[in-house]
């Protein structure tokens, strides 16, 4: 138990510290690296509460894809983040005010949080399997392709449209680009490429 508590505080502390560094680091590349660190620690927290599937997804998707992609963008686009930060103090009062109002509203809602007694009966019949019998990866897999097949396929369609959209909006066929055409290469006969000349000895071509 003590190890669990210690690791919780370790992960939580590092995650918050890394999150603070993400927004305070001067160099955007460092920001992204701290973001990755924050993701890793959040994944650790998920493992602690027994949600190993979400922990792995966090590593694979957020660290493996999103953060690395973001790193590429930051390095390639050469955006000056210090310029983006200009005017920060100017917008701070109004931004802070909106933030405080939102926070107050959220606290008010949070304070009034009671699940209606009828809600229990209205919840759709997916009893959570006991955690000591089924791992949560297994449990998600069981319902993802059966009960939620409609949403799963729908999400697949959304991703397909995103891919088509990216290609439609950015792919340009540029003239003058030489591509390897394997069929042309194989179909090439020696007669097309080589010319045999009889050279008289003692004279040039």
């Amino acid at each position: 138990m003590i190890i669990q508590a210690l690791s919780f505080y370790l992960f939580a502390f590092v995650a918050i510290a890394a999150a603070v560094m993400v927004i305070s680091a001067r160099n955007p590349v460092h920001s992204v690296l701290f973001l990755i660190l924050a993701f890793f620690n959040a994944a650790g927290l998920f493992v602690l509460i027994g949600a190993e599937f979400i922990a792995m997804i966090l590593i694979v998707v957020y660290v493996g894809a999103v953060a690395v992609l973001f790193l590429f963008v930051v390095m390639m686009l050469d955006i000056s983040f210090s310029e983006l930060r200009q005017g920060f103090l100017q917008y701070l009062p109004i931004g802070g005010l909106v933030g405080i109002v939102l926070l107050a509203e959220l606290l008010m809602i949070g304070g009034s949080w009671v699940i209606a007694p009828v809600a229990e009966g209205a919840v759709r019949g997916f009893p959570a399997p006991p955690i000591d019998q089924v791992t949560n990866t297994h449990a998600i897999g069981k319902i993802l392709y059966t009960d939620f097949i409609y949403l799963f396929q729908g999400a697949g369609m959304v991703l397909l449209v995103a891919m088509i959209g990216a290609i439609v909006l950015t792919l340009r066929s540029r003239p003058g680009v030489r591509k390897q055409k394997i069929s042309d290469q194989i179909n090439r006969r020696p007669e097309d490429a080589i010319e045999i000349k009889k050279v008289q000895s003692g004279s040039g071509i």
């Binding site: 209606a116 809600a119 209205a122 759709r124």
Partner: peptide
């Protein structure tokens, strides 16, 4: 979802019909 405990429209309808005179919580309205 947080205040009603279900995302299904049928479930929500049953839930709200069962509320009676008490009215929905603030969170639901927000």
């Amino acid at each position: 979802y947080g205040f009603a405990g279900t995302t299904s429209f049928d479930g929500l309808a049953t839930l709200f019909k069962g509320l009676g005179g008490t009215g929905p919580s603030v969170g639901l309205v927000v």
